[in-house]
């Protein structure tokens, strides 16, 4: 995915270099030394991987180091890289290839407040529109002031229609209408935006489950994908978020937003590993095409600050 990292590089070079240099000086060209475990630990913690994942990764790396007895520090970083990529391995097929699925396919986006759901809906719509699919959006965030207007702006940019109702309307009804409209208009894909909600609010999570349920009544099998939108600056709370959302609705993947080089979104790896949910897309900017399919290699390189990726 050179595009993504290319994009990250432009404009954000300054901080990035500072960061990369630090890691380079700690490892590059140096002999491996057990004192360096602490530096590795620091890198992993600072990327928000969290206690259990850091301990797991380092214990795996220790086993490998014991077996292979590397000389150079770089080699250990590479081992860790391998272990991390493995932890992210997902065998499920790319959901954006609609293929033979019965139309309309329905996607639903969920997440806590301010992670970028509405923006991501806009980007997904543009991506799928470009691939020649007929897309329709549902503005089921009927709570936040001007959320519908925000989605309308994105739909204009992406040239796709939006189904919406007035603020305060029943969000499940909007979702239902959107799916019904998608069926009637023979659309390929309906994408439903939902209101941000903190995962520890019981009533709001029940509402989410209801939105999910009613879509299945409008079109059996819908929604086919439920994506949890996760802010890359999120810390260990991301785990609690993912677990609670998965309890309410069957989350099928993660979209990691606002990945910018200093926020590395390491908690996504912790989630992918402990809850077995694949990371699907990453958002890196505010333009319509700033959404990229997730690439484990580049993501891990970014966390480890390896110099071999253009970064």
């Amino acid at each position: 995915m050179p595009g993504l990292w290319e994009r990250l590089r432009t404009g954000l070079t300054k901080t990035r270099q500072g960061l990369g240099d630090k890691i380079l000086s700690a490892f590059s060209g140096r002999q491996w030394d057990d004192d360096l475990w602490e530096s590795l630990e620091e890198i992993l913690y600072e990327a928000d991987l969290g206690v259990s994942t850091v301990e797991y990764l380092l214990s795996q790396a220790r086993v490998m180091v014991r077996q292979r007895r590397p000389k150079a520090a770089d080699e250990v970083v590479s081992m860790l890289h391998l272990i991390m990529v493995e932890a992210l391995a997902s065998s499920s097929p790319d959901p954006s290839q609609l293929g033979e699925l019965e139309r309309p396919v329905v996607w639903m986006l969920v997440g806590v407040n301010g992670t970028g759901k509405t923006t991501t809906v806009g980007k997904l719509a543009a991506m799928m529109q470009r691939r020649g699919h007929q897309v329709i959006l549902g503005a089921a965030d009927t709570f936040r002031a001007a959320a519908t207007e925000q989605l309308l702006v994105w739909s204009d940019r992406a040239h796709v229609p939006v189904i919406s109702q007035a603020i305060g309307a029943d969000s499940a009804a909007v979702a239902f209408d959107t799916v019904t409209a998608a069926v009637a208009r023979r659309a390929d894909l309906a994408i439903i935006d939902t209101a941000g909600r903190l995962h520890n609010k019981v009533q709001l999570m029940q509402e989410l489950a209801k939105i999910y349920r009613v879509m299945g009544k409008a079109h059996s099998g819908a929604p086919h994908e439920v994506w949890l939108v996760l802010d890359a600056t999120t810390g260990q709370n991301g785990l609690a978020q993912a677990a609670s959302f998965m309890e309410a609705v069957p989350v099928s993947g993660i979209i990691l937003t606002k990945l910018d080089g200093t926020a590395k979104g390491g908690v996504a790896l912790a989630i992918a590993r402990s809850l077995n949910v694949p990371i699907r897309y990453v958002g890196v900017g505010e333009a319509l095409d700033d959404l990229m399919p997730f690439d484990p290699e580049s993501y891990v390189s970014a966390i480890l600050g390896e110099n071999r990726t253009p970064f």
Binding site: T15, V112, T234, N237, G238, T262
Partner: peptide, 15 residues
């Protein structure tokens, strides 16, 4: 600052 922010909170505030 979002209370759910992780390690980056410090870097963001410093910048």
């Amino acid at each position: 600052v979002d209370a759910m922010t992780g390690q980056d909170a410090v870097r963001v505030t410093e910048s």
